[in-house]
Design a protein around this nucleic acid. Structure first.
Length: 298
DNA sequence: TTAACTGTTGATAC
DNA sequence: AGTATCAACAGTTA
């Protein structure tokens, strides 16, 4: 699935298209992708699109009932949210009223074929544009939530790596007292949110720290260089529009990301380490494929 | 046929 | 209590 940089890219590219749109219809092609409540949002207007951890929040208001008429269906509130988690294979694809994303687009044929076998949910807007939620493995979900429920869901996740409050001090404290492998900790979203397997592997390589190193054995210098590496690698991921290593991650127009072209070790078993030139290894750690250099990462 | 997959949660055992 | 390992979700591909 998309990690923080991929979800951030999708969110930022979706926002200018979606803000102001009103939902005309929601088509549920797979029951597990949108458990219930999809009829509630019909008629609502999108006011913002934002990311938290690896989730996308689409904020909605009912323009006909603004603070005046109570809607019994959702407890009298005129505000709702669509909360989306893409999990491993979720995609959000936007098309305009002509079912296009722009002239001469390289993925135009693919876009024209939507909905595909993997399309689980369609949002139709009142101006004729559409948003497709594709999800091959059906782990992803879309839920209707009140503001309170959204905040409750967000509270399950620790600070985003990109949050200004995610300081070196916070990071040091979060990992200081655990004997678990450091890679497991930086991917633990009860400690910090946004880091998945790709960016975890690459951050550890940049900081020259072994993914297997016990967290409470790291020196203060190592903790600081890992903190800096995490921030730098996640920002690079955002700047390059995310990573597409297996074709599953694509942006709102169907384009691949570019981070994988500059990845350090992820998916590069046997290739030279960018630090020292030795061969990159691949081993399992906590059930996840882990790429690292056994020569320069300690 | 088997294992692997960019996520997350819950059960189980030590 | 903290940690490690699996399994589950489900579909495709190497």
């Amino acid at each position: 699935m998309p990690e923080l940089p991929e979800v951030e890219t999708i969110t930022n590219r979706l926002r200018p298209y979606l803000v102001g749109k009103r939902i005309a219809e929601v088509i549920k092609l797979h029951p597990k992708s949108f458990s219930s409540g999809q009829l509630l949002v019909v008629g609502y207007q999108i006011t913002d699109v934002a990311r938290r951890a690896k989730m996308i929040r689409i904020q909605l208001v009912d323009p006909n009932k603004k603070d005046r008429i109570r809607n019994p269906a959702n407890g009298g509130k005129n505000k709702l949210n669509l909360l989306i988690h893409l999990k491993m294979t979720g995609q959000l694809i936007y098309v305009d009223q002509n079912h296009r994303v722009g002239g001469g687009h390289p993925t135009e044929d693919w876009i024209q074929a939507l909905p595909s076998n993997h399309t689980r949910i369609e949002f139709h807007f009142m101006d004729g544009s559409k948003l497709f939620f594709n999800d091959q493995r059906v782990f992803g979900w879309i839920k209707v939530m009140s503001d309170e429920e959204v905040l409750q869901e967000f509270s399950k996740y620790a600070l985003d790596i990109t949050d200004p409050q995610f300081t070196l001090e916070y990071f040091s404290l979060a990992i200081a007292h655990s004997s678990r492998a450091i890679k497991v900790l930086i991917m633990d979203n009860t400690l910090m949110s946004g880091v998945g397997n790709i960016y975890a592997c690459d951050s550890l390589n940049l900081a020259r720290i072994s993914p297997f190193h016990k967290a409470n054995d790291l020196t203060a210098d190592q903790v600081e260089s890992l903190y800096n590496a995490l921030k730098a690698i996640i920002q690079k991921g955002i700047d390059l529009g995310g990573a597409t290593t297996d074709g599953k991650y694509i942006d709102v127009h169907g384009f691949a990301g570019k981070y994988q072209l500059q990845a350090r070790v992820y998916d590069k078993k046997g290739q030279p380490c960018p630090n020292c030139g030795e061969k990159i290894m691949k081993e399992k750690l906590a059930g996840r494929g882990t790429y690292y250099c056994n020569t320069c990462q300690h």
